[in-house]
């Protein structure tokens, strides 16, 4: 038996919004410690990993591990039926072929229950190695979203170069070129830790997709190391995260 209750549907809506542009379907792996999800996009260029620890939930019960295969489009349709300030309870029986979502209005005067059919998805799990990133940058999530949007005007490829002087985003195409550089700020909005400078090239449209998670967090963490996927991490309060990994472009 699995049961998890969140005080606000809004965060669940935001989490699904952050995933559904990359993934159509996905399996939530629920255990007694919380919910995990990991999936690649169709082209196997990026990977998204979601973790919600049980402390994130108002109520959490999971007697035995259960995998819930969900169609994110359908889930979005159900979430549209709820108000952001409704409480939501997700329930599934052991070996069930459906999941139940119940919404309760803030004043408790309205309840609505929906059933969603579960999918039997054959998803492979990848081992994500522990990586020591040579460059770790924290910046406001809205700033990162703005940079990705502005870069997209110029080119499909975005070069991210990080050194002690700052982090620089560059794009050049037929129209011209764009360079945006952020230095560390004394107030701590932007922090930059660099062991070794790194410069890598990435597909801008994936970066833009990751910024769908912007409403979830004030700050985003970016991790760069030579010849490994870029890490873009949005914390979910203190109880979890969405991590996006993006394979760099490489010289053929």
């Amino acid at each position: 038996m699995f049961e998890a209750r969140l005080a606000s549907t809004l965060t669940l809506k935001r989490i699904v919004d952050a995933l559904r542009e990359i993934l159509n379907q996905s399996t939530l792996d629920c255990s007694d410690t919380g919910i995990q999800m990991q999936a690649m996009d169709n082209s196997h260029v990026s990977l998204v990993s979601l973790c919600l620890r049980k402390e994130y939930f108002e109520k959490y019960k999971c007697n035995r591990n259960i995998s819930l295969g969900l169609d994110l489009k359908s889930l979005t349709k159900v979430l549209k039926c709820a108000n952001g300030d409704d409480a939501v309870t997700i329930k599934a029986a052991d070996k069930a072929d459906k999941v139940e979502l119940s919404f309760e209005s803030a004043g408790k005067e309205r309840t609505a229950d929906y059933e969603l059919r579960l999918l039997n998805l054959d998803q492979e799990h990848l081992a994500i190695p522990e990586t020591e990133y040579n460059c770790v940058v924290h910046m406001p999530a809205t700033e990162f979203a703005r940079i990705c949007r502005d870069m997209a005007t110029f080119s499909e490829s975005v070069v991210i170069a990080c050194s002690k002087e700052g982090i620089k985003f560059s794009a050049s195409g037929e129209m011209g070129a764009a360079n945006i550089k952020l230095s560390e700020t004394t107030k701590g909005e932007v922090s930059i830790q660099v062991d070794e400078p790194v410069a890598l090239s990435f597909a801008g449209r994936y970066l833009s997709t990751f910024t769908r998670a912007t409403p979830l967090a004030e700050k985003v963490k970016i991790g760069l190391a030579p010849d490994v996927p870029l890490l873009v991490e949005y914390p979910i309060e203190d109880y979890g995260y969405i991590r996006y990994y993006l394979a760099p472009k490489v010289d053929d």
Partner: peptide, 14 residues
């Protein structure tokens, strides 16, 4: 020439 790498060449199956 630059080509897009695949995530599966960095992260391997469990």
């Amino acid at each position: 020439k630059v080509k897009q790498g695949s995530i599966t060449s960095f992260f391997t199956k469990k």
